[in-house]
Write a protein that binds this DNA or RNA. Sequence first.
DNA 1: CGTTCGCTAGTTGCATACATCTAGTCGATG
DNA 2: CATCGACTAGATGTATGCAACTAGCGAACG
Lengths: 220, 220
Amino acid sequence: MTAASDRAVDQLRERILGGEYVPGERLGEVELAEKLGVSRTPVREALRRLAAEGLVDITPNKGARVIDYPRQDLEKIFEIRAHVEGLAARSAAETASMADIDRLDELATVLKERSEAGDLDEVYRLNAAYHATLNGLAGSAVLTSTVGHLIHSAVLLRTLHSFDPAARQRSVNHHLEIVAALRARDPDWAEAVMRAHLLSARASLLGARRRDEENLEENA
Amino acid sequence: MTAASDRAVDQLRERILGGEYVPGERLGEVELAEKLGVSRTPVREALRRLAAEGLVDITPNKGARVIDYPRQDLEKIFEIRAHVEGLAARSAAETASMADIDRLDELATVLKERSEAGDLDEVYRLNAAYHATLNGLAGSAVLTSTVGHLIHSAVLLRTLHSFDPAARQRSVNHHLEIVAALRARDPDWAEAVMRAHLLSARASLLGARRRDEENLEENA
DNA sequence: CGTTCGCTAGTTGCATACATCTAGTCGATG
DNA sequence: CATCGACTAGATGTATGCAACTAGCGAACG
């Protein structure tokens, strides 16, 4: 479970989150083993671990596929995140060090730049890093791993792609405002903004779905 | 990942949750393989899956141990559960069928009996079943699996053992009240009781810790 | 006497061979 | 001609052998 298996997990995760494998796509063991230059054993391990992270779905005797959540679940994910990450933001406001907050500030600032430049891929990465960092500051391994799964599922479905420019700007501002709340050591404020941030994302998602359905009707 | 591996997972989970292996205890692959009558491969699979469920902790090249959360994390777990299962109760109040509610009612009723009879082992089992059922009613696989991990960690540490009789009776009453809220189709009520239920459990936990520390001082 | 190096036993990680299951195709039969 | 069944290729599941790593002990050296 060292070199080979770890590398397999990292590479697979990156490829899945990077969109190289689309949701629902089959992930054959032998194919992956050849592509990664290892035997099937570490590949199996990797697939099991990714299943644990919620990135792939394994059916006995039938193999692994990239997970494909229904849209409804995705909305639920944002509701849960609104609560759980709200808690994390609250904790962070109470315990984070100045160095931690500075790091978060840096992420939020660069994120704002990249967003204004229209570099969506980088916005993804930074957004994930921002949330992962903040959740880590809550200082509870349980909380971090809990939310980790949820974030993966969301990134997977390219949530941000559905954002219209106005929503994206709101999102960027939320990130900065949360940093301000942390600096002010104000748990209530931090929690409230984080909740707003994620519920706003959820709303954008609903809007995107409505647009998708309308487009479908047009093309029908 | 069929017969052998599944059986291994089920047996190990039962033994861990049943307290046969205590937190921190080492879980050697060969030993388990012999005990379960299979080879090391399915045992390894099983350990990885249990790690995914949050029941064991695997360190590369050093093997698996039963997980051992610090008390602090346990409190965090109940905070998160209060939020997430609160959501689940809300959803259930909106969508559960009468048959579902009857099933939950049955569980809560038997649980009350067993609690009054002092049968704590059975109370554990029924309590876990009650929460698992209710979370399942929310109709979101994501939510169910998210909370599943959290519940495992809690059961693992024998939370209920720390309950004094008064707290246990409160807990039993909460279960029944939630059923009533579901029958009334009142999401707000259901959510509020569930939150109270879990925050009450968290408070009992804090009380138990205080008692433990006092006992330690006495024995010192 | 304490520290460090090397050895050894035991465990985990990886690769490979074999067993079992699934799905698709071809052919036989009503 | 349609349908059912057996066969076959390809995949996953399991077992086992070998390699690499960890930890613990003991002896040699400073």
